[in-house]
Simulated scan of single mutants.
Amino acid sequence: MTQTAIEIAPDSALLVIDVQKGFEDASFWGPRNNPAAEENIAALMDAWKASGRPVVLVQHASRVAGSVLAPDQPGYAFKELVEQRRYESLLVTKTVNSAFYGTPDLADWLTARGIGQVVVAGIQTNMCVETTARMAGNLGYDVLVPLDATHTFDLAGPEGLALTADELATATAVNLQGGSFARVVTTAQLLAA
């Protein structure tokens, strides 16, 4: 498969999805994949800051009782790598998977600035990252997803069906690019663009 050159728009927005301390709780989430995700997210945040492009931080405020991501729990806070790089980033708070159903309204914010391209990174690959990327694609944005700047966890489904975190990440890549929602790329490709 030939990879075409990636062009990053001068105002491309980096959406950093749910990089919160609660996702460090292995007893709650189970096994994860991609231990380099946080390093890649930090590299993208640094590159976006250096280039003057906008960064949007998305924070999940779970309404599920006992969730490690509930606003009254320590896990609601951003991981240090994000906290150290907040700068003047927009903060969107959400209670569902898509960052487009948060406060303030992400689509309104992007539209007001004439932003047509978004890069979606963060946690979890197959949940909030994929949902946000799919919706961005549906809304007409040019969407890039650096899969290596995301991670997820093993997940069990109906009737004993289960997938590993790596299998879920692969499914997300196929869903997003195969379904024409987004282009799946690497952090290195974005940093070199």
Rank of each mutant, 00 (worst) to 15 (best):
R86G: 01
P146S: 05
T2V: 04
T170C: 05
S89P: 09
L81E: 05
A133K: 11
T150M: 04
D11E: 12
V58Y: 00
A37W: 09
G102Y: 07
T95H: 05
A47E: 13
K49M: 07
A5K: 14
A50M: 06
L57D: 01
S27C: 02
P158M: 14
A192Y: 04
L190H: 04
R53F: 06
L139Y: 15
R53Q: 12
N97F: 12
Q73F: 00
L90F: 03
Q84N: 14
N40P: 10
P71F: 00
V185P: 09
A42D: 10
T164H: 08
L139V: 00
L190C: 11
G178A: 06
L144A: 08
E24S: 13
F181D: 06
A13D: 06
A193Q: 09
W29H: 15
D154G: 03
R63C: 00
T95G: 07
D18R: 10
R183K: 14
P146N: 07
L44I: 06
Y87M: 05
E39M: 00
Y76P: 09
E7Y: 04
A13P: 03
G30Y: 06
A70I: 01
L90Q: 06
L69A: 06
E7N: 08
T111W: 00
L90I: 02
F78D: 00
A99F: 03
M45N: 08
N34T: 09
L90G: 04
G114F: 06
G75I: 06
A70N: 11
D142R: 15
W29I: 01
D25Q: 13
